[in-house]
Computed example of a mutant assay.
Amino acid sequence: MVVTIRAFNVTDIFFKNYRMLNSNAAMAWLILRVETLQNLILLSAALLIVLQPGKRLPGFVGQSLSYAITLNTIQVIMTRFRCNLSNYIVSVERIEQFMHIPPEPPAIVEDMRPPFSWPTDGRIELQDLKKQYRPNAPLVLKGITCTFVEETRVDMLAAKGQEAAIYDGPD
């Protein structure tokens, strides 16, 4: 995936979108859990206050619940702050990791290019050609065997999930 992102030269856009989507999803998940837990605690406290035997002062009950709701809000704000701080720290670590990825070699090496008319005569034979995008990726070309003779046009056609069909024919 990194190779494709670099090939299209969209690393800045990818990092911006990835960081935003990843951090927002994680933060929303965590805050939902924190708020659920706090609401359960607040509900339990309110039930204990209301169901407690004896005389209750209405002002005390109202003030207790008001403070509990305020503490819930403060807890959510602190959770958001902590999530953002963690995301900034992780993004710095990721940038440091990506700085040490070796650059890809250039697509065209001028000193090593064959002449424009190459091949002028002869043939190219491929036997059991297998290619993959990276070492751990699945094969994208699976055992292609073919021969190309001079002045022959070659088209490779493949639908997704099918074998490549090679057509050899004159121009």
Rank of each mutant, 00 (worst) to 15 (best):
N72D: 02
T120M: 15
I95D: 10
D155M: 04
L139S: 05
T145H: 09
P53I: 05
L40T: 01
P53T: 08
Q132Y: 06
M156G: 02
Y67H: 11
S117Q: 09
L43F: 06
T147E: 12
F148Q: 06
A46P: 01
V154P: 01
K142Q: 13
K142N: 15
L51V: 01
R56Q: 12
L42I: 15
P115F: 08
D121V: 06
T79E: 03
A107F: 08
N84F: 12
C146R: 00
V109T: 02
L47W: 06
V92E: 15
N84Y: 10
L139K: 12
T145A: 02
F116T: 09
L37H: 11
A46N: 03
S66T: 15
L47Q: 13
G62T: 14
F60V: 08
L32S: 15
T36L: 09
T120H: 12
L129P: 09
P119C: 10
E104H: 04
L48M: 12
S91H: 07
T70Q: 10
P114F: 07
T36V: 03
Q75W: 08
V90H: 09
T79C: 07
T145C: 02
E151T: 15
E35W: 02
M27P: 02
P115K: 13
I41E: 08
S117E: 14
L57G: 03
R80Q: 11
I77P: 01
A68K: 04
G143M: 08
Q97M: 10
I144C: 11
P58N: 00
T73Q: 08
R82Q: 10
V61M: 11
N87C: 08
Q38P: 01
N72H: 09
E150S: 15
E125H: 05
Q52I: 02
L129C: 10
